[in-house]
Simulated assay, not measured.
Amino acid sequence: MGEVLISVGIVGCGEIAFGYGNPNQPDFGPSIGSLDHASAIREVGGFDVVACVDPSSEKLARAKTVFPMAGLYRTLQDFRDAKVEVDMLVISSPTEYHEEALELAISQDIQAVFCEKPITDDPQASTRLVDKATAEGMTISVNFLRLWDDTMAELRSRIMSGEFGELQAGTGVFVKDITHNGPHMIALLSDLLGPVGINEGVTCAFARLNGEGNHGACASLSVAGANVILHKLDHELYNFFEIELHFEKVVLRLEDGCRRIVLRKPVPHPEYTKLLYPEDISVFNGNQRMALANAWREWRAFFEHGTLMRRDINWMLSQEMICHQIKAMMVEKNGDDALTKGIS
């Protein structure tokens, strides 16, 4: 694709911005893929990173090796004072700094923002900022990476076609805070199966039993007419999330945050005649290395042709709100109080 040079500022130059690329191969081709924004931007082309913001001089130095012409700024105030004009802002800083960065983007009339999840730690602040940005005509998207994974799109088509039958039940396991990995999991369930709701009575019961910080069942979701139970782990060495979905005709397991997908289809049971057992196993990988580049291709189409992003910001915000509400129930061991103090 030819040069378009959409100007970009990156706020937060850590791993998701610069750390997951291959420093020994500076010119990524389409077959390499990208796990960080810098690699994806260079792979897709058409973007000009003109500013990088981070308090770490080491991270700024790394950013400078990737984008030599970019201005380097230690704080958002330095960036603001420099009066750098950008078409788009990437917010990949720690979550506690997202609100300030979004406020800056709105005040500077920046056209678009690509934000890491969650939008902010505070659901009320997230709602306020999304409403304010939308009113100002800004387009925001959240990096729910699997939305742009072609393998997930194929799975969604197979589910929607009825190949797997109706969903019967499911389980999900996550580590860290529900608002950390949870939004990825909720967004994926919603994208694959349709709207996700909270079974409040059961979730409140889990909250009374476990409270915050303990491992175990923590939420019951209503998805496609079935119950999906979420479990929290306190194992710090694990990462991401895993989901197992039992359909009428297949058991689908999404492992390691969808890096690996396992399908178990029924075959005649070896011991019990006339019965079936989900034994026929097929294993394939997700395509997350291409997903982020696909997202940036979508951003390029947005700027060049006015193409809408795959999911709008209100849909993305609603996925995060589910996680905030679950967290409120987990924090408040009295589930009834959690409902009144949580997200309405």
Rank of each mutant, 00 (worst) to 15 (best):
T203R: 00
V267A: 15
S141I: 06
N181M: 11
D336Q: 13
A135S: 01
A61K: 12
G170N: 02
V223H: 01
L102E: 11
L317I: 05
E320T: 15
L89Q: 06
E136Y: 05
E271T: 05
D48L: 03
A226V: 07
K83Q: 15
K59T: 06
L167C: 06
D312M: 09
F28G: 10
F18H: 06
D149S: 09
T171M: 09
N143G: 10
D336A: 14
N334Y: 03
K59N: 14
S318C: 03
S141H: 09
K132R: 11
R311Y: 14
F284G: 00
T171I: 13
K327R: 13
E248C: 09
R146N: 09
L233A: 08
P268T: 04
E85P: 02
P94C: 10
A224W: 00
G137F: 10
F174V: 01
F284K: 00
E58I: 15
C115K: 03
Q108L: 07
I243R: 03
V267Y: 15
G182K: 00
R208T: 15
P266H: 00
K176P: 00
R74P: 13
I178S: 06
V90K: 01
A125V: 05
K265D: 07
I32N: 06
R300H: 14
L276N: 01
I261N: 03
E99V: 02
K333E: 15
S222T: 08
M290L: 08
T65W: 10
Y97A: 14
N210W: 01
V8L: 07
Y238T: 08
A295P: 01
R42E: 11
G9W: 04
M138P: 04
T171G: 14
A169S: 07
Q108P: 06
F240P: 01
D36L: 03
A328I: 06
M69A: 15
E136S: 15
A101V: 07
H246K: 08
E304Q: 15
L145C: 14
E99P: 02
I140M: 12
M69T: 11
Q108A: 11
M185Q: 12
F114L: 13
Y20R: 15
G172N: 12
M185E: 15
K341P: 04
I243G: 00
Q108F: 05
V53S: 04
K249A: 03
I281D: 05
V130Y: 07
P23Y: 14
D312Y: 14
V4W: 02
Y238W: 11
M138V: 14
M88E: 02
G21S: 09
A301R: 15
I326A: 05
N314S: 10
G194E: 12
R128V: 07
P278K: 01
L245T: 01
E116K: 00
M69G: 10
V113P: 00
L102M: 14
V250G: 05
I229F: 03
L35Q: 13
V86M: 03
I106G: 02
V44C: 10
F67I: 03
D150N: 00
L129I: 02
G9R: 00
P94W: 04
I178P: 00
F174G: 00
I178A: 13
N334S: 06
T273C: 07
